[in-house]
Design a protein around this nucleic acid. Structure first.
Lengths: 127, 127
DNA sequence: TCTCTATTGATACCAAGATATCAATATCGG
DNA sequence: CCGATATTGATATCTTGGTATCAATAGAGA
């Protein structure tokens, strides 16, 4: 990750513009608009480097391969659309989840995933 | 799933006794106490049949392959121990998650996963 | 008990996601 | 502008989780 290349810029730009977690394949498609011929291996390589340096964070959701989003964001959760499978960021967070932990268990984190249809799939009646 | 075999009984018994979602491999280990020589293929076969008939439900958590639990339980969530990787059932559920959905999005489900250390790993100081 | 055939265990195979390989290319300090 | 070498794209390979195959075994009705 020492030289500046248009491939790296395109991957990062895809994540910044999307403003939601993207799969490596979504990143590939988006970044290919900037860099035709971009390969999936490069997407994985850049994501690995950006994850290592902390500029990107992996987003793991049930039943899906990891998506990636830019890291300079506060604590938040995600909405997974059942129509288009896209994942969106949501701002809120339920408070006081510690009360649900079984006695004797120590809680140090949590994940909340909302499911449903995004505004696009609601209006389109997506499958 | 037409004949009663000790393999099927052992798989079901493992799930009933555990009272928490188990991975196919956890089921294998537990059921082998009843049926030495039990194969992983049979575990997958029985799980598939039990999932199809609704007696078992898959539990998908971020970054993990599916676990399975008996289905006659109400709505609940899970606690994923970072020490032993075991998953436990938790009873509560945060209310009013709909308020977190972005405008125009339709919410029809949610998942909450708690992370931390189970009582065993807390006392043992598990890695 | 006998017979039919569902079920089993071992293992080959498959699919998805990701990494390794390697020759060709592009970056960038000098 | 040159040259050393980081980076790239194509693709072979690997890993994990799960399914298909098939000969041997074992339910269970007659």
């Amino acid at each position: 990750m020492e030289r500046n290349t248009k491939q790296k810029s395109a991957v990062k730009e895809a994540l910044v513009v999307a403003d939601r977690p993207l799969t490596p394949f979504e990143i590939l498609e988006s970044a290919q608009a900037q860099v035709p011929g971009l390969g999936i291996a490069t997407v994985y390589r850049v994501l690995k480097a950006m994850t290592a340096d902390g500029s990107v964070v992996p987003v793991e959701l049930p039943g899906s391969a990891p998506r990636y989003e830019m890291s300079h964001r506060g604590h938040h959760h995600h909405f997974h659309c059942r129509g288009c499978e896209r994942v969106y960021e949501v701002a809120g967070c339920p408070q006081d989840l510690a009360r649900f932990a079984p006695p004797g268990f120590v809680l140090d984190g949590h994940e909340v995933v909302l499911y449903g249809r995004c505004s696009t799939c609601v209006s389109v009646g997506g499958h």
